[in-house]
Design a protein around this nucleic acid. Sequence first.
DNA 1: AAGCCAGTCAACCGCGCTTTT
DNA 2: TAAAAGCGCGGTTGACTGGCT
Length: 340
Amino acid sequence: MGRAPCCDKNNVKKGPWSPEEDAKLKEFIEKHGTGGNWIALPQKAGLRRCGKSCRLRWLNYLRPNIKHGEFTEHEDRIICSMFASIGSRWSIIASQLPGRTDNDIKNYWNTKLKKKLLGSSAAAAAAPPRMQRHQQSHHRSSLLLPNSPSLNPGGGYPGFFSGAGGFHPQEPAMPLTLPTTTQEFMLGTHSGHPMVSASALLNHLHGASHHHQLLVKEEISSNMIVFGSDQQSCSSSDGLAAPHSHHHNGNREFILDGYSYGGGYGNSCIDQVDNDKLFQHHQQDDQAQEQQQQLVYNYDEIKQLLMNTSTTSNNINAGQDHGGSMEAGLIGSQGKVTMM
DNA sequence: AAGCCAGTCAACCGCGCTTTT
DNA sequence: TAAAAGCGCGGTTGACTGGCT
């Protein structure tokens, strides 16, 4: 079945935004909000623009607290390590970089960071793991497990996911059901399975709600980046959530290269109730928390990943078809996971 | 000065998912 | 329950810019 266009293509302006249009949009949203309806917004605001275009302009450029300009070294590292963990899930990555948008990060990665990592000579050969459209649907809704053949096809990313935990490659592919609570999921207390991994958690949280950002606890020693799970905040991709969020986020621990990412960021936008619940859960189960599996990423190995990517992207696709794949798919948002 | 080229980034497109009717 | 509407995402495109010849 075809899909109706979101707006009358003939009656909307395309291309770069003028300062006047920016001002109109900004003023309207600051006065009235989006009204929960981007499609109707341009008409109300007196703009001859597609609703999607307005949304994008607001999220990527006009909304408060947007950070433009150079990425810092530790932002680089966050991007790299998360890319290694979850691939090109830019919105999730953006959620860890306050003030940065997914579009920004995507552009930065494609134009600079990739080359920075690889060196100009190797850059041309490098490409992030990519899938064709029909495969993306699997990718997006999947729990990409660190030791999954999908990410490590035939040892394609050797030693990359060298965490002590996560799914063990030898484990048989089997259906598993997500625990009913995030806590159970995080702590791996459900069904006796090991902690599903940071990337799985990312998928779970992101899939469950865009307002529930991944929980990240990082411990850094030299170049090692450790993803665990601890905390939650909100996606910076959510243009409306960020400016209005001032919740205390003291539970957050996010340390990278000596920089501590505490509750200082203004866009931590966890619902306070959820946050309290979460904190309570942590208190209740410190012991289980200690058992959290962690993934260890070697920064240098990210380069290796990129070097291998161009030769493994085909294998990534192929790997999904193999029996025994450790890739788990998150089915809808019902919390049920089956191994694909 | 003019043309070419590569890099950058804002914006568009189309798809899947979720929500509403 | 199905269809429609809307949202959000990642991939891609194209305009712009600066450097080089």
